[in-house]
């Protein structure tokens, strides 16, 4: 016999539960991801009460200085402390990341749920809109908005939020549709439960884990988008600090002061990789199959 032989459903049921890895809260991606993200958060939080120097405090004597005891991350071409900028940049990144994810979920989740709960016509219409927004690059959308409304944090948040909301809506729609096919939703209908209550009582509790993972990924996308916008001069306007603008300002002096490019780039990478690892870890924990199977088979 050459066919795949482990397909008999009962066998799979009997086997699947115990052989899957269940690392749960101790999963390496969860730990590493949390640590990386905590570093970024700590920088942002500490910057609220303390930074080594003032934002515009320039030390003309130490332009483009390398990392030292006075300037942990060196200085830029005006002699401003780069570590201060990194800390304040973290604050911007976290703020824009969190707000645009909030915007994305505020828009995307209801839209996705509506599509899943409504009839075919509405569903097709929403799916069409989602596809168009996904196909439309977030950066392009941002540029459009900036041209109309001028560069500001609000515009950046809106642009990123709208761009990411399409992904959120798509995922919410797909996972909610899957829940809608379950017999317990049909059973709820036959119990006289209304659609809004079905959404709250049956659908959301069964999809929020998936959405949470998506939120972490969306945060990463938002951080990159913010950095890109600022790099292009379309994001947070000066004087508010941003990793993207640090990169942009440092690129002309990359030959003399490579660390000025490296460090903000590294900051973006740490934030994005951290949040993605965290998302992976959460996915492992959040999978209800992984958690309930064990107990179910234990009986």
């Amino acid at each position: 016999m050459t066919t795949p032989l482990i397909e008999a459903s009962e066998t799979v049921d009997a086997i699947a539960a115990p052989t899957r890895p269940r690392r749960g809260w101790r999963s390496p991606s969860l730990i590493v991801g949390s640590v990386l993200l905590l570093v970024v958060l700590a920088l942002a939080l500490v910057s609220l009460v303390w930074t080594p120097y003032g934002l515009d405090q320039a030390d003309p004597a130490a332009r483009l200085a390398g990392p030292s005891a006075q300037h942990w991350a060196g200085t830029d071409r005006l002699g401003r402390d780069q570590f201060t900028q990194l800390m304040l940049g973290a604050r911007t990144a976290v703020w824009i990341g969190v707000s645009s994810v909030a915007v994305a979920f505020a828009l995307g989740t209801p839209l996705g749920l509506l599509a899943a709960a409504a009839g075919r016509l509405v569903d097709d219409a929403v799916a069409g809109v989602i596809d168009i927004v996904i196909a439309f690059p977030t950066l392009l959308l941002a540029m459009l908005l900036v041209t109309v409304y001028g560069a500001s944090t609000t515009v950046a948040i809106s642009a990123i939020g709208i761009g990411v909301s399409a992904e959120v809506a798509r995922l919410a729609r797909i996972s909610a549709s899957r829940v809608f096919t379950q017999d317990y939703v049909l059973a709820a209908r036959t119990c006289g439960t209304s659609t809004p209550v079905i959404l709250i009582r049956h659908v959301l509790p069964n999809i929020w884990h998936t959405l949470l993972v998506q939120a972490t990924l969306a945060f990463g996308v938002a951080v990159i988008a913010e950095a890109s916008l600022s790099y292009l001069g379309l994001g947070t306007p000066p004087p508010a600090p941003s990793w993207g603008r640090m990169l942009q300002e440092a690129q002309s002096t990359v030959g003399v002061a490579p660390w000025n490019v490296l460090l903000p780039g590294l900051a973006v990478a740490v934030a994005v990789v951290g949040v993605n690892l965290l998302g992976d870890g959460l996915r492992e924990i959040g999978d209800p199959q992984l958690r309930t199977r064990r107990r179910a088979t234990g009986r």
Partner: peptide, 21 residues
């Protein structure tokens, strides 16, 4: 019944036990 081990027995007789068993 399901979980009685009958299918595992069959797989063992063909040398097809899943990894880890």
């Amino acid at each position: 019944e399901s979980g009685s081990g009958k299918s595992l027995t069959a797989l063992a007789l063909l040398g097809l036990l899943p990894a880890g068993m």
